[in-house]
Design a protein around this nucleic acid. Structure first.
Length: 223
DNA sequence: GCGACAG
DNA sequence: ATCTTGTCGC
């Protein structure tokens, strides 16, 4: 698939903050998504010793959830891990992997937040803008703030609120299991995002897309 | 000054 | 993210 928006990755912290505020205005929080035939998952693994990052993009058939295509990329970390500026560290290798895909996925699930972010521009938004593709942020923990109690049954959810604005949902993907945090990445509404996350969490807490990508990068890092 | 802080 | 043993359960 083709990246359509480019910018320098070697930025100062202040420049990264400025870029987020600028790009946040381009994020689309409503549905602008075609029929979904394929869904992709992306993830990154680290090697502290070599300061190396390994990224993978795994494309699945949206209904059978079988793997259609995979792509991997490697990179040397150019940006430190700073909460709130996460994408500037993980996105370079992810963009490389996505660029290698023969076909453009109809939807991409990211391991992290979408607009559930202090400047409403988490990793999922960044990926969505750079490739002009529908994306969803599905994180395992919250970047900031809290949420009200979530029902205990799969499908139950509670709104994520920041500054009196609903920025996402804590969503229970399996009965009695800790919920995940879903938010709009780009071109996907919150309700649609949650429907997709539930459809992808067939057996485990996390979506099959991110599970496949996670498994791939970890196996690659061991070599 | 102190605490909070995606992966 | 990653470092790590055993243990509970299908």
């Amino acid at each position: 698939m083709e990246q359509v928006v480019f910018h320098d990755w070697k930025l100062s912290e202040a420049e990264a903050l400025e870029l987020q505020c600028q790009f946040a205005g381009r994020v689309e929080r409503t549905d602008r998504i075609d029929y979904v035939n394929t869904v992709a998952g992306v993830d990154v693994a680290y090697d502290e010793q070599s300061n190396r990052l390994v990224a993978a993009a795994v494309v699945l058939n949206a209904t059978s959830l079988t793997i259609i295509e995979q792509a991997i990329a490697e990179d040397v970390a150019q940006f430190p891990y700073i909460p709130g500026l996460f994408s500037f560290r993980e996105l370079p290798p992810i963009a490389k992997a996505l660029s290698q895909l023969k076909c453009k996925p109809d939807l991409i699930i990211c391991d992290g937040q979408g607009i559930a972010h202090p400047r409403r521009f988490g990793l999922a938004c960044h990926v969505g803008i750079l490739f002009d593709v529908p994306t969803i942020g599905c994180g395992k923990t919250l970047l900031r703030g809290a949420h009200e109690t979530v029902g205990t049954i799969r499908g139950d959810y509670a709104p994520l609120i920041d500054d009196r604005e609903i920025i996402g949902r804590a969503l229970r993907t399996q009965d009695g299991i800790k919920p995940v945090y879903v938010s709009t990445g780009h071109r996907v509404s919150l309700p649609t995002a949650c429907t997709w996350i539930l459809a992808l969490c067939t057996k485990y807490r996390l979506p099959e897309t991110t599970r496949h990508a996670d498994q791939l990068v970890k196996s690659l890092l061991k070599r």
